[in-house]
Amino acid sequence: MNISSSVTLDPGLKKHYNINQYEVEEKPSYCSKFIIFLSLVITFLTLPISIWFSFKVVQEYERAVIFRLGRLKSRKPKGPGMFFIIPFIDTYRSVDLRTRAFNVPPQEILTKDSVTVAVDAVVYFQVSNPLTAVCNNENYARSTKLLSATALRNVLGIYILSDILSNREVIAESMHKTLVEVTEPWGVHVERVEIKDVRLPIQLQRAMAAEAEATRDARAKVIASDGELNSSKSLKEAADVISSSQAGLQLRYLQSLHTISAEKNSTIIFPLPMELLGGFTHRDFSSARRRKGIKCDNCKKYKTEDTN
């Protein structure tokens, strides 16, 4: 694996910087060989004290990147378990391969529809290439955190407030793709991104609550109106059915009276059909007109019928 391929340099700096600096030197210089030989001699002369500085141990979830005289010793990291280094000239850096998680601090973001919201997220990442993580980035964990905060602001800036509240998974996936593309040259793999919380200003929350309440009230009134319309149609159909039979209305009265009496009420108000009083009211009206001297054609008609 050639990790030098991920290093990008300014063309003006290439004459001062060796682009293949991370390549393992196949043939060390004579000076390097002499220093290595001298270190080995000192190590053997100081046994068994030097043995405590020569053997190192890394855990199962760790890998060790060894540098000899400032240069990368091997293209493959050491570990897990015990490995040997030469004191005085070898240094190593242990890299944790376990998945890590960190909270992205709440970011004050201006959405596309000019609404200020505070959004925070959770990012899960792990080191996929220890050599690249050590050689290509001074502090890969801190760089990933800063990049996550910037990516969160950039991604949310192109959405409106309703999309941020309803499409969290889409936003998290877009942010995840952005982080994967940037952190791959660092030897870091971003496993998952989750939008944690979206905080709205208090005034905006009140306005949205009032809007939602008004919408629910309007919908309730529409539903109640539809119910009244349907019930009136049903009552009209029932009235048409009852009016088709002379005894139907009386039976309905009796049924209502039975229903009311079942509740043990002491006072019952029962409606009386006005048709039953039609004849009495008409006769009283005719007699009143006679007393006042008002001619009535219907009175003559009734008188004729009485005579017959």
Rank of each mutant, 00 (worst) to 15 (best):
N2H: 02
N2E: 07
V7Y: 03
V7M: 07
T8W: 02
G12F: 07
G12W: 04
L13K: 11
L13P: 00
L13T: 11
K14P: 01
Y17V: 15
Y17H: 10
Y17W: 08
N18C: 03
N18L: 05
I19R: 10
N20R: 13
N20T: 14
N20F: 13
Q21E: 11
Y22I: 04
E25A: 07
E25N: 08
E26K: 12
P28T: 08
S29D: 14
C31D: 06
F34L: 15
F34M: 12
F34V: 10
I35W: 08
I36R: 07
I36G: 03
F37N: 14
L38Q: 13
S39I: 03
S39N: 08
S39M: 06
V41D: 00
V41H: 00
V41K: 02
I42Y: 03
T43C: 11
F44P: 05
L45W: 12
L45I: 14
T46I: 02
T46E: 00
P48Q: 13
P48V: 14
S50N: 06
F53R: 08
S54P: 06
S54R: 05
F55D: 02
V57G: 00
V57C: 04
V58Y: 08
V58T: 11
V58I: 07
Q59D: 12
Q59M: 05
Q59C: 04
Y61E: 10
V65K: 00
I66E: 01
I66K: 00
F67W: 08
R68V: 12
L69A: 04
G70Q: 06
L72I: 12
L72M: 05
S74H: 10
K76L: 05
P77A: 10
K78I: 05
G79A: 03
P80E: 11
F83G: 03
F83N: 04
F83E: 03
F84W: 15
F84A: 02
I85G: 04
I85E: 01
I85K: 01
F88R: 02
D90K: 04
D90F: 06
D90V: 10
D90E: 00
T91Q: 08
Y92A: 03
Y92G: 01
R93S: 13
S94V: 15
V95L: 00
V95W: 00
V95A: 04
V95H: 02
D96M: 06
R98E: 09
T99A: 09
A101P: 00
F102P: 08
N103V: 13
N103H: 12
V104I: 11
P106F: 12
P106A: 12
Q107Y: 02
Q107S: 14
I109H: 03
L110V: 15
T111Y: 03
T111W: 00
K112E: 09
D113T: 10
D113Y: 13
S114W: 07
A118P: 00
V119K: 01
V119I: 15
D120P: 02
D120H: 11
A121C: 07
A121T: 07
V122S: 05
V122R: 10
V122Q: 09
Y124M: 09
Y124N: 09
F125V: 12
